[in-house]
Design a protein around this nucleic acid. Structure first.
Length: 304
DNA sequence: AAATCGTGGCA
DNA sequence: TTGCCAAGATT
């Protein structure tokens, strides 16, 4: 078997990436020593499909206002939705609020340190549960986000991109790389993510700056182009998603309730707007009564 | 299990 | 300019 076809030594890969981290990592506020599990959890919710640069300010305001789960749980969901601002995917705000309520009511106000308990919370999937425990408690978990998946796809598999969603084989591969020592496993999680975010990026990888360039199978093969199924494009113009965003922006900026007709007028296609509104209501992002539409649990615009 | 769900920046 | 992409979760 030619060298280029042989996987690099796992230990060497982990070692080099972990050594690279201290001198290259960004100084992100949720990485500061002593950051609690709750602020870390808030950052992970916000970072789901959202770039770091756009999360920084909302995160700062969020954790200052709600320094612990019980504080958020004590406020209506409408406040969480407003504080979410324009981060996108506002259902995350609803789920984070619901998670805060669950933590307050069922976990004594403390973010669970058990993987399965964390996983049971609204909006917490495999990645987020592992990330919170790894970053906040230095527990040993496979943290498999889009960055890590890309790093492994390239270095080990010689492919430009990972598949759409993590496969069993992929998880197994990642688990095999995980150091036995929890602190070291946590360091690998943070380091491999950072490498994917700063160097081994999706569009313009900076191989000359990569600490494992000489171990990378993708590079050894000459950076073969992606030959898998076409990457799903996210259409936008005229979609229900765009419509939902428009309607929610109106509700977010409104003081109380907005008359239904006025809200629907914010979108050219009335039929589509009605469908989008129904979706917002179903997702707990809006409530409609005789007076109009508003954010849920807002306590405003109620009948006397 | 494929589809859905926001928003903005950048190559 | 526009398509692609970003620390995913849910149904």
């Amino acid at each position: 078997m030619p060298d280029a076809d042989r996987p690099p030594a796992a230990a060497e890969l982990v070692q080099r990436v972990c050594d690279w981290f201290p001198g290259a990592a960004r100084d992100l506020p949720w990485r500061r020593p002593g950051t609690g599990a709750w602020p870390v959890m808030v950052s992970e919710f916000m970072l789901q499909q959202t770039p770091v640069a756009r999360v920084l300010e909302p995160w700062r305001q969020w954790v200052e206002r709600w320094p612990e789960p019980s504080a958020l749980a004590a406020d209506p969901v409408s406040e969480a939705i407003r504080a979410w601002g324009r981060l996108g995917y506002p259902r995350r705000a609803v789920r984070l609020h619901a998670a805060a309520v669950a933590i307050t009511e069922h976990h004594g106000g403390v973010v669970p340190t058990d993987h399965d308990e964390l996983l049971a919370l609204p909006g917490v999937g495999g990645y987020t549960a592992a990330a919170v425990l790894s970053f906040a408690h230095r527990q040993r978990h496979v943290v498999l986000d889009t960055n890590v998946r890309r790093v492994l796809a390239r270095t080990l598999d010689g492919r430009a991109h990972p598949d759409r969603s993590p496969t069993v084989a992929e998880r197994r591969q990642a688990a095999a790389l995980l150091p036995d020592d929890p602190a070291r496993a946590a360091a690998w999680a943070a380091s491999s993510m950072e490498l994917g975010a700063l160097v081994c990026t999706a569009r313009s990888p900076a191989c000359p700056r990569c600490p494992v360039a000489d171990l990378c199978r993708w590079r050894a093969l000459g950076h073969p182009a992606w030959d898998g199924p076409p990457r799903r494009g996210q259409t936008w113009q005229g979609t229900d998603r765009q419509c939902r965003g428009r309607l929610l922006a109106v509700l977010r900026d409104a003081v109380g309730t907005v008359p239904s007709a006025e809200l629907l007028a914010a979108w050219p296609d009335r039929t589509q707007a009605s469908r989008a509104l129904a979706g917002l209501v179903a997702d707990g992002l809006a409530v409609e009564d005789d007076h109009g539409v508003g954010l849920p649990g807002g306590g405003t615009g109620e009948a006397p």
